[in-house]
């Protein structure tokens, strides 16, 4: 399905925590075709030239939901928008999202979702669209960084939160909590989104368990539609040769076997 370029209003805005906004936009043309793992590309003021890619956290009826962490000029502008504001949005983008089991899937084994920080957001869309039970492990730096806990708990069968400093939930990285679930559960696949070092650890873990694993990657992006070739990531092709492909068009989700960690 072709992406759409249009202006969409913010219906609701709340804060998940200080510095992280939760925006719900009425965007039927995007909502009707969006799939888990896809993203939208948003113009953040006339002063900033480039659009900013934001993952879809959820899609309900004619709305799309975006979780925006204020980390730079573009995301800070977006974070400060209010209900009623119009946003210039291009999307949904990405041709390869999370291959979440749907009603046509015969495999009834559960899936495991592993999220790091704000990277947890797109996994909520996975959990909601999955036809099989989803378990989730969400990792954050510290207690005050935790987001979306209640919603994952409502949607998922099991849910664990970890913090690096042990100030909330389990102490330590997501991978140790995930390993426990993988030991006891009979999962069909793992879907993950977070920073590159977390994804590398998840890739190593799932390889150990011999499980399919899908990773949502991030790279500085230009056009978002596959024309400018800037959001390059190194992948291993079917010929086992390493080459550059692009997050926006061929991704943003890649299987563990494809990704070359550097």
């Amino acid at each position: 399905m072709s992406p759409v370029l249009d202006q969409y209003p913010i219906l609701y805005r709340s804060e998940l925590r200080k510095g992280v906004a939760d925006l719900v936009l009425r965007a039927e043309a995007i909502a009707s075709i969006a799939k888990p793992g896809q993203f939208v590309h948003i113009k953040c003021s006339d002063e900033l030239l480039l659009r900013r890619p934001i993952s879809l956290c959820d899609v309900e009826d004619d709305t799309i939901r975006l979780v925006v962490e204020s980390v730079g000029k573009g995301s800070e502008w977006l974070y400060r928008r209010k209900a009623g504001d119009l946003l210039d949005v291009l999307g949904p983008l990405g041709t390869q999202g999370f291959p979440v089991p749907d009603s046509s899937s015969k495999d009834s084994r559960p899936i495991l979702l592993i999220g790091g920080g704000v990277g947890s957001a797109p996994l909520l869309f996975c959990a909601k669209r999955s036809s099989v039970p989803a378990d989730a492990v969400l990792g954050f730096g510290t207690a005050s960084a935790v987001i979306l806990e209640r919603e994952f708990a409502k949607t998922c069968r099991k849910m664990l939160v970890t913090t690096d400093d042990g100030s909330y939930g389990r102490a330590g990285f997501v991978t140790s909590a995930a390993a426990e679930l993988l030991e006891s559960g009979n999962y069909q696949a793992v879907h993950a989104c977070g920073n590159m070092s977390m994804l590398q650890a998840v890739a190593a873990l799932t390889e150990q368990f011999g499980l399919p694993c899908y990773l949502s990657l991030d790279e500085r992006m230009g056009c978002g539609i596959g024309a400018c070739l800037v959001c390059a990531v190194k992948v291993r092709g079917e010929d086992h040769e390493e080459h550059y492909t692009h997050v926006c068009r061929q991704g943003p989700v890649f299987s563990r076997e494809e990704v070359v960690f550097e």
Binding site: L50, G222, C228, L229, A232
Partner: peptide, 8 residues
Amino acid sequence: EGNRPPRI
């Protein structure tokens, strides 16, 4: 193949 990222 082009240059190593980041490219923008």
